[in-house]
C-alpha cells in the first residue's frame, strides 16, 4: 500500500507534517457584526475599539432610546442608533445581513434599549452578546440577561476587541 494511503487517510494524518496539507485560502469573513454602546461609559469603550483596527464587518453605534407614544416607563421603546460620526440610523436598517449584535453596558441605564434591540435580533435570528463593564454589575447584568445569549461579567478593556477578532468581524 502506498505511503499516502497509510498516512493521509487515517487519523495518523493529524501530524504536524500532514497538517501542511490543510488547504490554505481566504476564509469568508463573518457577515455583519453590530456593536452597540448602551450608555455613555460604554460609548467610550466602543469608540476605542472601533478606532483600534480596521474592521471589515463590524459597525459601531451608540443607542438612544425614545419613549414610545404612550410614554409609559417600562413599555417597549423605540431605539435610534447613532453611528460614531453622529449619523442617525434606524435599528431595522442596521440589522440587515447581520450575524451577531454585541451590546456594551457600563450601567443599567440602557436596559430598555437592550430589550428592544434584543427583541429585534431575536425575531431575525441574530445572536446577541452583552459585555458588562464596571464593578457593580449586578443590576446591569440582570437587565441584559434576558436579551443576551452570552454575557461577559465583568468585561475588561480587551474583551470587545478579542471577540471581534475571534469572529473575524
Amino acid at each position: 500500500m502506498s505511503g499516502w494511503t497509510a498516512q493521509g487517510n487515517t487519523a495518523q494524518a493529524a501530524s504536524a507534517a500532514e497538517l501542511r496539507y490543510r488547504m490554505s485560502y481566504p476564509l469568508v469573513p463573518s457577515r455583519g457584526v453590530r456593536v452597540v454602546a448602551l450608555d455613555s461609559g460604554a460609548e467610550m469603550v466602543v469608540r476605542k475599539v472601533a478606532a483600534s483596527s480596521t474592521w471589515n464587518m463590524a459597525r459601531f453605534y451608540s443607542a438612544e432610546t425614545i419613549l414610545n407614544s404612550h410614554g409609559i416607563h417600562g413599555a417597549p421603546v423605540e431605539v435610534v442608533l447613532h453611528g460614531l460620526d453622529g449619523a442617525v440610523e434606524s435599528l431595522n436598517d442596521e440589522l440587515v445581513d447581520v450575524d451577531s449584535t454585541i451590546m456594551v453596558a457600563t450601567s443599567d441605564f440602557g436596559s430598555e434599549a437592550a430589550a428592544t434591540i434584543g427583541a429585534a435580533c431575536s425575531v431575525r435570528g441574530i445572536m446577541t452578546a452583552g459585555l458588562v463593564h464596571g464593578e457593580d454589575t449586578e443590576h446591569t447584568v440582570s437587565a441584559l440577561r434576558p436579551y443576551a445569549q452570552v454575557l461577559l461579567v465583568p468585561a475588561d478593556d480587551g474583551d470587545l476587541e478579542a471577540i471581534l477578532t475571534a469572529m473575524r468581524a
Binding site: A14, E18, S30, V150, M167
Partner: peptide
Amino acid sequence: MGPIVDRTKERLATT
C-alpha cells in the same frame, strides 16, 4: 485538529 491547531484559521462565534 493537528498537534497545534492553527487558530488563524478559526471562525469563532459569540457562544
